[in-house]
Structures are given as C-alpha cells and as structure tokens.
Amino acid sequence: MDKVQVLLLLATALFTLGLTGVVIRRNVLVMLMCMELMLNGVNLSLVAFAHQLGEAVGAVLVFLVFVVATAEIAVAIPIVLLLVRRKRTLDLEAFSDLKG
C-alpha cells in the first residue's frame, strides 16, 4: 500500500473517530476535543494530498484550518464556562432548554 493511501486512511479514521466521539461522549469538553480531532483528520488529508501533488495550496488550507480551530476554541471555552456556571455541570444532556 502506498504511503499516501495509508495517510488518507488514517485521516478518515481520525475524522470518523472524532465524529463518533461527538455523538457518544457526554462531557462537553470531551466533545470539543473530539471536534479538534476531526479537524486534525481533515488537516492530515490536506497535507497528504499536498504532498502527493507537490502543491502549496493544501498547506495554505491547513493554515486556515489552524486559525479556524483557534478561533473556535477561543469562543467555545468561554461558552462552556458560562454553561457550567449556569447549571453546575458539564453534562450535555442537562442542556436541552431549546427543545422544539
């Protein structure tokens, strides 16, 4: 199997693991971390493709994803802190106030 293919498999695995983690884990912080994992998976696939094609575009996208991830965490952590202050728990199942 080729190197790139292995890396792409790994990227897929990281992405799906992250997604599944978001679904099955209960703790908000853990869910956030799983989302980071998904982003890492995407990043890996970008780097793999960039490596295969010898193009700088993939790397540029990776940097943009870095920034997005940073911004996301910068907003998400205060929100989590607020949620905890409101309900004294990180259990996401306690937060279903927006029920339709």
Binding site: I24, R26, V84, T89, L90, D91, E93
Partner: peptide
C-alpha cells in the same frame, strides 16, 4: 461534577 464520571451519552 458528575459528568466527569459518566462516560457515554
């Protein structure tokens, strides 16, 4: 916090 101990949803 209890949620630190409960693993899964």
């Amino acid at each position: 916090d209890e949620s630190m101990k409960v693993r899964y949803s």
